[in-house]
Amino acid sequence: MTATTFWKQVTWVVHKDLRVEWRGGETLWMATPFAALALLLAPLATGTDTALIRRIGPGMLWLVVILFGMTISLRPGSYDSRPVRDLLTLNGLDPAADYLGKSLAGTLMLFGVTVALTPIMIVLYAPQGNPHWVGLAVLAITGTLGMGLLGTLVGTLVRGLRVRTALGPLLAVPPAVPVLLATSRGTDSALSQGSILTWLLLLIGMDLALIILGVLLAGPLNETTA
């Protein structure tokens, strides 16, 4: 398979998954309102300590994005059924292209959720500082990419298992911790015009590791779960 064909297949998977999501609306109409609700309710639980609310804002945003991101990645609708997977295998879809395409589609959905939730976080938590907007955008892109890659990888690992919804979060949490730390601490730094370089490098390292791991495992996982 040529590189052109490979990237055409990646684009094809992104297009397919986004079209299915657009028609089904699971992320937009189910996950996002609950995520917004979680952001809304958390300050009520902390009482009237506004200083504390300001401090936890960025962390809460990313915690909510990660948790609902995992829910989005592990939902039954995010997987092709077995007959469809058979069809794709017989029509030449490269499992690595499938992994990258699904991850990118998941990333775009999560990025959309993050963009939708950020104004809510700013209004409710009123974090102080003079934001470094470019830094925040780069953190959002690398952070949601990490979550998209991780969700797809875990989803592929537990695909077809009865205990998928229980095992998925257990497998996802350890590698999600550095992503959560890097995004929330990096956001704190970006809000106060501090350096985000360390956190950004951690996110880029995680993203690269997940890309390499997922691409290497995609073929064997596809054959064993066929």
């Binding site: 092709d80 469809v84 058979d86 030449g92």
Partner: peptide, 24 residues
């Protein structure tokens, strides 16, 4: 893997359950 892919592209399977995307 290339030979396997070549073979697969010349095989079609219609199984028990339809291989369609319900939302499309």
């Amino acid at each position: 893997p290339e030979a396997l892919l070549e073979a697969r592209l010349r095989i079609a399977l219609i199984g028990h359950y339809p291989s369609l995307w319900p939302e499309m």
